[in-house]
């Protein structure tokens, strides 16, 4: 069996994506109280309730069984479309599935998976930059769900690309000009950062970039980027952290 499929004959392709999503954080499990509050909101801003998809976040509730079906019915009655449930114990997960809803793990996922360790010598799964990106299925596409990072020991050299698709990337060494380091979470470089560093590649705006010596060609957090030209020259060569605040990349000295 050949895995090669003619692109024209494909019925679909999987794409990772970030969509704006309203999260309804429940602090009460009582459908009646939810109905009252929704009715109030609906009269305030009717434009909002246009079959808007929502994720019901039940993390704050401490109840093993939820009247999930009734809560959903209340939502639909107010033109909100519950598409998934986030958090909650196993019975909640099961009833979400039974109702045809998706289930997401809670936001504060325990970081149980140890960092995968790789060294700079040998084949460190270094993809050539020509490889088509963007057809990657990303299970943890919501911010904050990134677990399972990666440690890279050695110099990331020109033309090499090192990626942590699911968590933080730690580089113990330098990232040279022409090299690219990417992470779903944050990028930490214990050395000079001369190449490109992209953090939060699946849209995690909480991610950051940290390095010992800033000379980066490009810095990007969740798609917001700065080129070397845009960086305050006084910060070059210093230890910095890069964070996103109000859609602006802020670069501040470390320590």
């Amino acid at each position: 069996m050949s895995l090669k499929v003619d692109r024209d004959s494909m019925a679909f392709t999987f794409k990772g994506g970030m969509l704006p999503m309203t999260v309804m954080e429940l602090t009460s499990a009582d459908p009646e109280r939810i109905r009252e509050q929704l009715a109030g909101k609906l009269s305030q801003s009717p434009a909002f309730f246009q079959h808007t998809p929502v994720v019901l976040n039940v993390e704050k509730l401490d109840e093993p069984h939820l009247a999930l079906e009734r809560i959903c019915a209340v939502c639909r009655a107010h033109k909100l479309l519950p598409v998934a449930v986030r958090g909650g114990p196993d019975p909640v997960k099961q009833s979400a599935w039974a109702l045809g809803l998706g289930w997401f793990p809670p936001q504060e996922a325990p970081r149980s998976r140890p960092l995968e360790s790789v060294t700079g010598d040998g084949d460190a799964e270094m993809a050539e930059p020509s490889e088509p990106a963007g057809e990657v299925v990303t299970p943890g596409a919501l911010p904050g769900t990134t677990v399972g990072g990666r440690i890279y020991r050695g110099t990331v050299r020109s033309g090499q690309q090192v990626t942590a698709p699911e968590g933080d990337l730690v580089v113990v060494g330098a990232v040279n000009a022409g090299a690219e380091v990417l992470a779903a979470g944050s990028v930490h470089v214990y050395g000079a950062l001369r190449g490109r560093a992209l953090a939060g590649i699946h849209g995690d705006a909480q991610a950051g970039i940290f390095c010992r010596e800033l000379h980066a060609e490009l810095l990007s957090v969740a798609g917001n980027y700065k080129r070397l030209e845009d960086i305050d020259p006084r910060l070059l060569g210093t230890a910095v952290q890069v964070r996103l605040s109000d859609d602006q990349l802020g670069i501040t000295p470390l320590g």
Binding site: G120, D121, G122, D123, A124, M126, T155, R157, S158, G159, Q160, N176, A177, G178, A179
Partner: peptide, 17 residues
């Protein structure tokens, strides 16, 4: 920069690697 690129290839595209 070109030497840096070659060093990357030496670490991945050789028999020893």
């Amino acid at each position: 920069r070109d030497s840096d690129r070659i060093l990357g290839l030496l670490a991945s595209k050789t028999r020893r690697a």
